[in-house]
Simulated assay, not measured.
Amino acid sequence: MEYEYLKETRRWLHQHPELSMQEFETTAFIKNELDALDIPYDTPLPTGVIGYLKGTTEQAVAFRADIDALPIHEENDVDYRSSVDHVMHACGHDGHTTILLAFAKRVKALYDAGKLTATVYFIFQPSEETEAGANQLLNAYSFKLKPDYIFGLHMMPNNEEGLVLSKPGPITASATEYRFFIKGLSAHVANKEQGHSAGEALSFILSQISQLQHYHLPGLRQNIVHIGQFHAGEAINTVPSNGYLEGTIRTYAADDLATVKEQMLKIAEACSVVTGTAVEVKFSEGYPSTSNDTDAYQLMKQASEETSLEWIEKEEPYLFGEDFAFYSQVAPTAFAFLGCRNAEQQFVTGLHTSTLNFDEHVLLGGVDLFSAILARFEATL
């Protein structure tokens, strides 16, 4: 019965993907499911839902699922493929939402039997992929009873079914965008010395950014200073008067991010002096590094031993961003990844690909893990 619910729920969600902050149909679906269970909820944002069941003590624990999809056109040839062109659940959020809904059903059964001691929050969060939905949600919502811990789980097609992966401390990187804006002075190529070339400035900036990791960041730490796109110039026979460069910064340590940003400001200043152009650099603050609290991590790891899942402690964190990081501002957090790779069924492509897919049986492991966490958490009361 539970597997059929997981299968039907996940496939409906997969067929009806919605982009960040546009998850109105998804939100209505979640509300209907919670209404059917008689679980109360709050809606602090236009999309997303926070359900809750009050326990008999002053303890509380929260579980989070993200609900948005990506602007990717699905290429899977399945009867439950996305019904929306160029929108797809390509990051497993349909799985996350399904796990949390099935878990809510289990918790409601405990509540109805008078066995729920800790208050449980079910956070269905919008806009993980863009606009830091977690941060927006927390800015708009005050928990009636502050959670002692907040837990999250993410599908991971790089690892086999039956595995759950995490590590203490940093588990995902911070993600910050940067943009250089260059304003030069145009001139005809015959009188090029009368201009100030944005092309020369762009070349200078590219050279300096490529040296940041080597000369200014600790060699034993993982960091990425990525150049995404750049361009300069207007015509074949004129000095380029405008230039642009953008990219992303991925770090685990706040001081490394501060170093990169400081050096980029210096690069912009030096470039202006050397090339005579006006150079401005702007940063778009993204997601902080997600870091697992020691106690929360151990609780989650020990809970996994009560399930059929095999816990794998990673040596290195992932270098992608994840806005679950913001929940650590509220309570100690732990975040893990649920393996869903299945070569026999050809479910082998990665996150954010047009062919991501998985067998819904793996979602049972996620529900079991959340249930084991709750059972272990209540045992500590």
Rank of each mutant, 00 (worst) to 15 (best):
D94V: 06
A28C: 03
S328P: 02
A109R: 12
E18H: 04
G92E: 06
E160I: 09
Q59M: 02
T349D: 10
I30P: 02
I312T: 08
T47A: 12
Y327N: 05
S272Y: 06
A190K: 07
H231L: 12
P147M: 04
T259I: 11
N237T: 14
A331F: 07
Y252V: 10
H89P: 02
E131T: 11
P17D: 12
D42S: 13
G162M: 12
N342Q: 10
Q329F: 02
D85R: 14
I50K: 03
N139P: 00
G228Y: 13
A201E: 05
Y215M: 15
A65K: 05
T98V: 13
L356I: 00
G133Y: 06
T26C: 08
T349G: 00
G243F: 07
G247Q: 10
S82G: 00
T380D: 09
S127K: 08
P170N: 06
K105G: 01
P288W: 00
E131F: 08
M21F: 08
G276P: 03
V84I: 15
D77V: 12
H216G: 01
S203Q: 10
Q346M: 13
T355W: 11
A379R: 11
G184W: 02
Q59P: 01
N357C: 06
G152F: 02
A65H: 04
L220A: 10
K54A: 14
E344D: 10
I224N: 02
L364V: 14
R341K: 15
